[in-house]
Write a protein that binds this DNA or RNA. Structure first.
Lengths: 227, 227
DNA sequence: CGGTATCCCCCGCGATACTG
DNA sequence: CAGTATCGCGGGGGATACCG
């Protein structure tokens, strides 16, 4: 490996790996539980397949993950090592700083698919009704052809769908992307948004009442903005 | 500002600024106490002036520092804001990870000038003899024309010189760069290195005896390697 | 689904020279 | 000392097509 910075400082050596484009977002996905190529991609939608593979190889070289062949195809599973799991600390400090000090959200940041993907990892199944529960999310300001998403909660797992599931919908959520994004980030409380109709809920009264309790929000939602 | 990642995740937003090349090393220098353009450069020797200025402007835009004109010339002083100072947490977590998991030191990392610059910030003046104290460091494996450095400790400050100071030398340290670098990083203890002659000291017996106590070592020296 | 292979463009960055 | 201006290139990475 070529030395980028010409320093033996631990910050410089770690930076060679960690500050490459997309790298921390990939590590974030892995630490959130993804192990498959296309699962990681859903959390980092704008990365190309070529580059994602390259980054995963670099993480392997750096000792942050190991590849595990899956018998079926030629596919691999990507499993974090101790070194990779310890990167959670780095993700934590950067995310905290971002939550406190980073720039405002702009239009181009508001990817509805990513928001749903983030939500599916942070639903508190233990407080949700038993059995299958299907949520439909309708983003009123998203492109006409992908503004609908479904979350299917069943058997302690949550799946994200971008096409109708065939199941009956238990709760429909209708809102602008930005509204739900800001609520998700913890930048504003959810109840006034529901009360004002900026987040509209349709479904049984009990489900509408309890919906706010299902959301665990972003990991950094409890950190207050400093600006 | 253009959105790089298309996500409103705090890690992504912070990464836009912090994972640019050289950025964390510049922030490290600022958090270590540098405020002047060329002081920062001594801690990040391989960056070009053009790019350093660009990065400082980006840190200003991000709210991590403010510029303060110096009345004399058209020069500026760069002062961290609260946001910039809070980046110490990020530096800490990355440095810890680097100390534990980063690759081994290679030849190209062993910049002797950088090592001396790092040392000058981490000398414990309070336990050093009163009055002026001049150290000469001779790197036996460095290029013939810059292998000698001097540290002048006086009035609670430490200056780094690359040309003879004219002062009498109180203690001479003679070693390979790699040896002192590994000692500095905390990868090996100093006393065996002195005992074996890999670090040679010349000067009054008291100074030779106490020299190890003056060194505060790298901030991450106490963190054990995990590999 | 989980990648490769290829092409090509842009721009990030280094190098050098110059200025107040 | 603390920058600015200009040039030029290398390769990082996006887009697209293809494959097992």
């Amino acid at each position: 490996m070529k030395s980028d910075y010409g320093q033996f400082c631990p910050i410089a050596l770690a930076s060679e790996v960690l500050t490459q484009k997309w790298m921390l977002l990939i590590v974030r996905e892995l630490n959130a539980g993804s192990t498959r190529f296309n699962d990681i991609r859903r959390g980092v939608p704008r990365i190309s397949a070529t580059l994602l593979k390259q980054r995963l190889d670099q993480l392997e070289d750096a000792g942050a993950l190991i590849r595990k062949p899956i018998n079926k195809n030629h596919a691999d599973e990507y499993i974090l090592t101790d070194a990779g799991r310890e990167l959670k600390t780095v993700l934590g400090s950067i995310g905290e700083w971002g939550q406190r000090w980073a720039r405002d959200i702009e239009k181009d940041d508001l990817d509805p698919g990513w928001l749903v993907w983030a939500m599916h990892r942070r639903l508190d199944i233990s407080v949700m009704p038993a059995g299958r529960l299907v949520l439909e999310i309708d983003f009123t300001d998203a492109p006409r052809n992908h503004h609908l998403f479904w979350l299917v909660c069943e058997n302690s797992t949550v799946d994200v769908c971008t096409k109708p599931t065939g199941f009956e919908i238990d709760l429909r959520i209708c809102t602008r992307v930005q509204t739900l994004a800001e609520v998700w980030r913890g930048l504003r409380p959810i109840r006034p948004e529901i009360a004002s109709g900026r987040i509209q809920l349709e479904g049984q009264a009990i489900l509408k009442r309890d919906f706010p309790k299902w959301l665990l929000y972003s990991v950094f939602a409890k950190t207050k903005q400093a600006r």
